[in-house]
């Protein structure tokens, strides 16, 4: 009895430490008073003024567009890479898998600076395209990480069975392999989308002047002095990412259940 109470208190403490900062941020985003130290009543006005700010909306547009494009392109490239790896011998597959994992563990600042240097050497003009390229690059490993386990679960005979029944290679892939790995592809896409959405460091080094995503926009605004609109914006980003993460965790399971009932 005492033991379980102690356990609960311990877990509660962990969650308080983890979520207290975010909770503070969310509370402050609804604070009518401009000073942080005083509660001036509940308000939506910071959210309202946020959506009137032309530059912030522009940054939001860039962020969503880059997240969508980079996640889509990375999903296609990552999935194709998984198909190739699946057909490799075990040894080369392990090596390639290890290499694709390194960028995920690598410090973001190193990835950001290396990409910046590469773009300079190649003579690219910094802007939307360089951000997009950078995001595709760091998103591919996440897609592979999510699709590969699905790929390994596949019974290799199902593809051959489709060929045997008269399907061409393309038909066999889209009718038999694709539906089986689709949950992995979807969660890979959402993961990539999330990563792109909240990236700051790599975007900061590859964006150049005149273009901003939400994270870099918040950074520049905060340097000028913290405006309560930024609390509202951060809250929106947090909630969006949270929803996407919940989707990743629960969407595939639900799908399987309905398939079984049908």
């Amino acid at each position: 009895m005492i033991k379980t109470t102690a356990q609960r208190i311990y877990v509660a403490l962990i969650f308080i430490f983890l979520y207290a900062p975010i909770a503070t941020l969310i509370v402050l985003s609804f604070n009518a008073s401009k000073t942080r130290s005083k509660w001036g009543g509940f308000t939506f006005k910071w959210y309202a003024s946020l959506f009137e700010d032309e530059k912030i909306l522009q940054a939001l547009g860039n962020t969503l567009l880059i997240a969508f494009l980079s996640a889509s392109i990375a999903t296609v490239i990552g999935t194709i890479a998984c198909i190739a790896m699946q057909n490799m011998k075990r040894k080369s597959r392990t090596i390639i898998m290890g290499i694709t994992n390194i960028p995920m563990l690598n410090a973001e600042i190193v990835t950001g600076i290396s990409l910046m240097l590469l773009f300079i050497i190649l003579g690219f003009k910094f802007g939307f395209m360089t951000i997009l390229l950078a995001h595709i690059t760091f998103n591919i490993p996440y897609v592979i990480l999510s699709v590969m386990p699905r790929m390994k679960q596949l019974n290799p005979s199902t593809y051959e069975a489709a060929l045997d029944l008269g399907a061409s290679h393309t038909q066999a892939f889209f009718k038999v392999v694709f539906p089986d790995i689709l949950p992995g592809i979807v969660s890979g896409f959402i993961m990539a989308f999330t990563m792109s959405l909240d990236d700051f460091v790599i975007t900061h080094f590859t964006k150049g002047a005149g273009i901003d995503t939400l994270s870099t926009k918040i950074y520049t605004e905060v340097r000028k002095g913290i405006k309560p609109e930024m609390y509202a914006l951060s809250t929106i980003i947090f909630v969006t990412v949270l929803i996407l993460l919940l989707l990743v965790n629960y969407a595939p399971k639900k799908k399987q259940d309905t398939a079984a009932v049908k």
Binding site: T158, E160, A161, G166, K175, P179
Partner: peptide, 18 residues
């Protein structure tokens, strides 16, 4: 294989689970 007039029954059935 898709052009051959024969069919295979695979060891682990290889049914399409979806």
């Amino acid at each position: 294989p898709n052009k051959r007039q024969l069919n295979t029954v695979f060891q682990k059935y290889a049914l399409f689970t979806h």
